[in-house]
Structure formats: structure tokens, C-alpha cells
Amino acid sequence: MGAVEAPARPGADEVAAVADAVRREAPLVHCLTNSVVTTITANALLAVGAAPAMVDNVHESAAFAAVASAVLVNVGTIDENRARAMHLASAAAAAAGRPWVLDPVAVGGLEFRTRVARELLGARPDVVRGNASEVMGLAGAGAGGRGVDSTAAVEAALEAARDLSRRTGGAVAVSGEVDVVVHGDRTVRVTGGHPLLTRTTGAGCALGALVAAYAAVTDDVLLAAVAAHLHAGLAGERAAAVAAGPGSFAVAWIDALDAVDADALAAAVAGGRLG
């Protein structure tokens, strides 16, 4: 029998199933991430049911990547040693068949991180997740944003995202007011979230880790990225409803990531959150 073709747009049952799988399997996510966001990233992973590990040194990164359930490579704060560890970890993950996610933070505007991130594409990330400017910068279609902030609209990055997807064979997720995930000929838009997510240090970087957690429990990388973005966005809405401002929102978001379950995600899909 031939392989079963993935649906163009994930359904409620598929999204619920992967959310249940994350809770049940507790995937170990190896995070090589930036020093600003380690705590919120670890807490976000724990809240959705995954297990975080922050192993970013050159002596251990490859060995750990080969046994972890999934790997996140985030180039937010990068130097020569971290870059070497990222190369080793991504290559080891690819060789071992472990899914890995590339988050090209501030790529396009700074030469060193841009070069490193483009080199990492050679290990064929299963998912690239970034804002519009970062995705365009990684693809060579733009000059980057203003630091970690995008200066391009999500829709403007679609061709760059599709180009990266063709080059890597993986999915590319572009975060914005409406998130867009592409994989080959498939394109899914995810609505929801709240502006306070953009005022919370590390929320986007933590999202990259959530994508890795979801990718650990399904072979459909588009489904993994869509479910993670939907989960983060719904949690953002719940957190905003009880928060007094950005500080309390950050705490409430972690609580909401824990509270959003498979049924809530399925209801959101049934309610038209995916387009």
C-alpha cells in the first residue's frame, strides 16, 4: 500500500490527537536556545506536557540531540561555540531521524547569525519558525527586521516560506497577526492569539520549542506547527482575559498553556480557527 496523503488542512480530530500525544508521551525537547528565554521556554514545555533540556555546549550537544525526542535550535544569542554546538546538534538530530526546529531570530539584519542560520539549513530542519522578516532574511529575500521585531507583513513572506519549504522538505511557519504554515503545496492560516504575546519576552522563542514538542509525536510537520501555534494562541487569549498587563500576562500564559487541552484545541478547529 502507498503512503497515506496528509490532508490539506488538519481537522479537529488530528489536532486533538497530537495534543493528547504530547501529554501522554512527554517528549524530551533538547533546546539550544538564547540566554534571554531559557526559563519561559522550559516552563512553556512543561505546561503543555513536554520535558525540557537545555544542553548547548559543544561537548554534549550532538550526543544529546541523538537521544532526545526533538531538538530546537534558536540563534537569538549566538557566538562561535554555540554556533558549533548548533551545527553538531542539528546534524546529529538529522542523522538519528529526530525532528528539529530552526528559529532564525533576527536573521537577515546581522551577518554572523544569518550565515550560521543559512548553513544550518543544510541539515534540513523539519520546521522553520520565525516572523516574516526573519523568514525572508533566511531565504535571502529581505534584509531582516528591527532586531527581533518584524518589519514585513506575514503575507509578504509567503513566497520566501514556500522557497524554504522546497529547499528543506520541511514546514515553514510565519508568525504574525495571523500565523501561516506552509509545507509543499499545503498552506494553513491560524487565527487567534493576543497582542500581549508580542510584549512578553520569549513568547515567540518558546513557541519554537512547542513546535518541536508537537513534531516529536507526529510525522506530519505541518500538523505539528499548526497545532503548536493554535495552542499558544488560545493560551494567549485566555491569559489576556485575566491579566492586568504584560507582567501578569507572562505568568497567566504559562497557566493557560497548561489549561488548554485537546478538547479546547478541537473546538477551536471546529470553530473555524484554521483557514
Rank of each mutant, 00 (worst) to 15 (best):
P99V: 09
H59D: 11
E111W: 12
D103C: 07
R113C: 05
S90A: 10
A91T: 09
E80F: 06
P125C: 12
P99I: 15
D56N: 04
H59M: 12
V71F: 15
V67P: 04
E119F: 11
T77W: 14
F64I: 02
H59V: 13
A106M: 05
D103S: 01
A63R: 02
V128W: 12
N74E: 14
A94F: 11
W100R: 02
S69T: 13
L102P: 02
D56L: 12
A83Q: 00
V128S: 09
A70E: 09
A95Q: 15
A66T: 12
A89K: 01
G97C: 14
F112S: 07
S69G: 09
V127E: 01
P104I: 03
R124E: 05
H87R: 13
R113E: 11
R84M: 12
V67F: 03
A123G: 05
A66G: 15
V71C: 11
R82H: 06
L121K: 15
V127P: 08
G109I: 15
A123T: 10
R98W: 11
A65Q: 06
H59E: 15
E80T: 12
V101N: 06
H87C: 04
R82Y: 00
S61D: 00
G122Y: 11
A68I: 08
A85Q: 00
A123K: 06
S90C: 07
L72T: 05
A117N: 09
A92N: 06
R115A: 05
W100G: 03
A117R: 04
A83M: 02
A93D: 08
A68Q: 04
R124P: 02
M86S: 00
A70W: 10
R82V: 06
R84S: 01
G76E: 07
R84C: 07
R98F: 03
V67I: 09
E119H: 12
R115M: 13
G97P: 08
L102A: 10
A63K: 02
P125L: 09
A91P: 08
D56P: 08
N81Q: 14
V75Y: 07
E60V: 01
R124N: 10
D79C: 05
F112P: 03
G76L: 02
A85W: 04
L121P: 15
A91V: 04
V58C: 09
W100Y: 00
V75N: 03
A85M: 08
L120W: 05
S90T: 05
R84N: 05
V75L: 06
A92P: 14
S90P: 01
E60M: 00
T114P: 07
V101P: 00
A92G: 06
V73P: 03
A95D: 02
L72Y: 03
R115V: 14
S69D: 02
L121N: 10
V55H: 01
L110Q: 10
A117D: 12
M86Y: 02
E60F: 06
A117G: 14
